[in-house]
Design a binder for these strands. Sequence first.
RNA 1: GGAGGGGUUCCCGAGCGGCCAAAGGGGGCAGACUGUAAAUCUGUUAUCUGACGAUUUCGAUGGUUCGAAUCCAUCCCCCUCCA
Length: 373
Amino acid sequence: MAALKYELIKKCKQTGARLGVVHTPHGSFETPVFMPVGTQATVKGMTPDELKEIDAKIILSNTYHLYMRPGNELVREAGGLHSFMHWDRPILTDSGGFQVFSLSDLRNITEEGVTFKSHIDGSKHVFTPELVMKIQNDLGSDIIMSFDECIPYPADHDYAKKSLERTTRWAKRCKEAHKNTEKQALFGIVQGSVYKDLREQSARELVELDFPGYSIGGLSVGEPAEDMYKMLECTVPLLPEDRPRYLMGVGSPDYLIEGAIRGIDMFDCVLPTRIGRNGTVMTSRGRIIARDAKYARDFSPLDPECDCYACRNYTRAYIRHLLKAQEVLGIRLTTWHNLKFLLDLMKKVRQAIMDDRLGDFRNEFFAAYGYKL
RNA sequence: GGAGGGGUUCCCGAGCGGCCAAAGGGGGCAGACUGUAAAUCUGUUAUCUGACGAUUUCGAUGGUUCGAAUCCAUCCCCCUCCA
């Protein structure tokens, strides 16, 4: 039996967006889904029970970080990542491909793989597709990513092409190295920067390799939103209908809705947790910087339309006070709220697909949030 | 009573004749953050002006000097030690 099954429930008549269910060894989740990021085997500031309370169905963790610390062998000894971190629902692990991008001054890329200098102690490590598979097999996540190169924006066509072709070769090596196919589903990652022909080439090459799901990477790295949407429009139609499509690293409300409209099923992003820790919250009426002085005497909740733990029990004035005083509860509450906000947003997106009105929902949401239509 | 040290912009604290509206912290204010090297980073913080620039600041008052937070005099506070 395969580790992953995608079930298409229905398509929105208004937009073509997909409502589906993904089945994994640790349970199922409805799509489109937002996955909170827990890089170091923890969603910063949240316990697994709290994540369940806000109805998170699947979370993300990271190959590079867990390999560096505490080490994949240790996680395996602990009984795998689920057991180690006390999370029994699905987990997706990223391959370290994003660290190829974000730790660019600490690494060197060759055909064989990527040599990293550890950001922790400077020690040298070589990541190959085979090692990345071994690490993720040790971690035991339900959905694993092939090792890719996430290139910066802007990138010239020539480099983007060479890079995507190497990413395809690495994907092939990943597929050959990955033996635990009944417990862990391996996704290939589409690259190609903002070039239509390259995105199409990448998608075709990966589909040829037949993965149980497909990721779209290398977007939301600084390119204009319009470019990202165009890339989705030319990529998604080339991906098989019976497999989930995962847009990596995307998490602002507009991107989530626009992504769903273009046929994306899965999203992850550090945005809600990071901006929460830095004092910004997303509300039904747009973003607010909760630290700002104008909320010092605002005794209303962060978002009057939200029923999360923070909004049920605390005021903007109190949360602002906690943030200013650098109390951990402050960033816990903003994190909690932001995650609940996005998880609720995706619930509404799924309902709108069910009701064939995602286009209307988009317009209503954009107007309330303050986005341009 | 004697000997010494000190009072700097919201706070702490550097500066010790011009390059000083005054380093550096802190605090305040504002902004950014999108497969997490992030509870981080950036900007700003005398007044007036869009800007050039102008004006008032370094305990107080007077003075020396082309020019003073910086030198001198007097005064007012604070701290340490001795009696």
